[in-house]
Design a protein around this nucleic acid. Structure first.
Length: 444
DNA sequence: TTTTGAGTTGTTCGA
DNA sequence: GTCGAACAACTCAAA
């Protein structure tokens, strides 16, 4: 029996964790390790809400590992240095992790792998955060899909990996370890009125059970109404890995099988899981999307970028009730309903004529479920800047969207009680802005 | 190589 | 009030 170090990144769970499972199987004794990377903490897109959710989830992981005889170690710094230190400290013979397909994460892993190898320590990575990665879902000519529907068809046709159980760990000698850092120690602070959801593997599993017990069977019909609890709300858990996509998929399929008369409702939820993997493979194969339009020609769009308008959008003071309600939901809870993400993104780009990347960064700073690939994909879709994007002339009318998806104004009332007062006025005129946006795109 | 069908989530206009 | 067409071509995927 030997000792391994499992490097947790965005897989903060014990159950159905392929890298951790393999570490326990091949080595027996496993220390967990989490690194607060200086690079990530300095990133202007980093935000307090997601860090708060992460810290809560890490603490749950720490307790979970301790109960099983393992231990979670942590440090802060730069990856190569800290991994070498952790390996020396624990006497680990191997480091395991789960594959990270974000450009910065991948570059970091290459450096760490090389440094560890020089010490004779292998870094082994598993495909864990998707059911199918970019190597598996390819067109007949071997190139990746850039259109969703055929991608989804190919994805569905593949045999699915099954969840693995939580591993049995051999006890490890405990090492001295300070308590996890607080948000303030990491240099972040939540707004006073913030209501951040609880993290942790258990919370994720409970929410999954709740969603699959009923809402999934009405998903297609109810998911577009922000006043209802019609969406899964699993995104924060999938983002930090307190839930595994294999587990979510397997249990969702089981729930659908139990009520075949509602199959279409549940399949619509599966489609959302496929979107998540679609955008991951887009980011992996086309990493330039992180810093600009999928199609380079769209970089030339002449956005107005009015800072006062951007500020009004951020604060939920545009005078468009559903847009403002949505932004206030984001600011207060760290989460925004899916349809509202489209509406607010479309409004920023097509009504305020502000660069989608401004909005993308704001969402990253504010969302508990902040995820580079999904957020970037969603924004490019709304801004019509890439393949498979929304056609540019298909512009949401925020008030028509409100009539349709918040017909009784219940959601608006919750966040924008002043919407009925005479002083509440739109900062722009939708019809006019719409024509300007059309002209902007037509000029390309 | 060529051809054909299709592409998450809408809105507006005019009959 | 309802309904179909226009919005604008373009590129992707697959046969």
């Amino acid at each position: 029996m030997t000792t391994a170090l499992h490097w947790f990144r965005r897989d903060l769970r014990v159950a159905d964790n392929l890298g951790l499972h393999a570490a326990a199987r091949d080595h027996g004794k496993v220390y967990g390790f989490y690194l607060f990377e200086d690079r990530a903490l300095r990133d202007p897109a980093m935000g307090a809400p997601r860090l708060a959710f992460l810290l809560d989830s890490l603490d749950a992981l720490r307790r979970n590992l301790a109960e099983r005889g393992g231990q979670l170690l942590w440090s802060r710094g730069e990856a190569v240095e800290e991994l070498l230190r952790a390996v020396a400290l624990t006497g680990a013979r191997a480091v395991t992790c789960n594959f990270d397909g974000e450009p910065a994460g991948h570059a970091r892993d290459l450096l760490v792998r090389r440094a560890l190898q020089a010490q004779g320590i292998p870094l082994r990575a598993w495909k864990d955060d998707v059911l199918h990665d970019a190597r598996e879902v390819l067109k007949a000519d071997g190139t990746p899909y850039v259109v969703f529907t055929p991608y989804a068809k190919a994805w569905r046709a593949l045999p699915k990996p099954s969840p693995v159980p939580a591993p049995r760990l051999q006890p490890v000698p405990p090492l001295p370890q300070p308590p996890l850092p607080t948000l303030a120690e990491l240099g972040f602070r939540l707004e006073t009125e913030a209501e951040i959801p609880r993290g942790g593997e258990r919370t994720g599993r409970d929410r999954l059970g709740e969603f699959l017990s009923q809402p999934i069977h009405h998903y297609k019909d109810q998911r577009d109404f922000p006043a209802l609890d019609g969406t899964s709300r699993l995104s924060p858990h999938l983002a930090v890995g307190t839930l595994s996509p294999r587990t979510v998929y397997a249990q969702a399929v089981a729930a659908i099988e139990k009520k075949p008369q509602h199959r279409l409702q549940g399949e619509t939820f599966i489609t959302e899981l496929i979107w998540r993997e679609f955008y991951r493979q887009i980011l992996w194969k086309f990493p330039h999307v992180e810093h600009g339009a999928f199609k380079p020609a769209y970089a030339a769009l002449a956005w107005e970028n009015n800072p006062a308008h951007f500020e009004a959008w951020c604060q939920g003071r545009t005078g468009f009730p559903l847009v403002d309600a949505a932004m206030r939901q984001l600011n207060r809870t760290g989460w925004m309903h899916n349809r509202l993400r489209m509406i607010t993104a479309m409004f920023l780009t097509k009504d305020l004529l502000i660069d989608w990347q401004w909005g993308e960064r704001y969402f990253m700073q504010r969302l508990v479920d902040a995820d580079l690939a999904s957020n970037n994909g969603g924004w490019q879709w709304s801004a019509s800047t890439g393949t498979d994007a929304q056609p540019y002339f298909r512009i949401f009318n925020p008030n028509r969207q409100a009539e349709r998806y918040d017909p009784e104004g219940r959601f608006i009332e919750k966040y924008v009680p002043e919407a009925a007062s005479p002083s509440y006025r739109p900062i722009v005129e939708h019809d006019r802005q719409r024509l300007k946006a059309l002209a902007l795109f037509k000029r390309l």
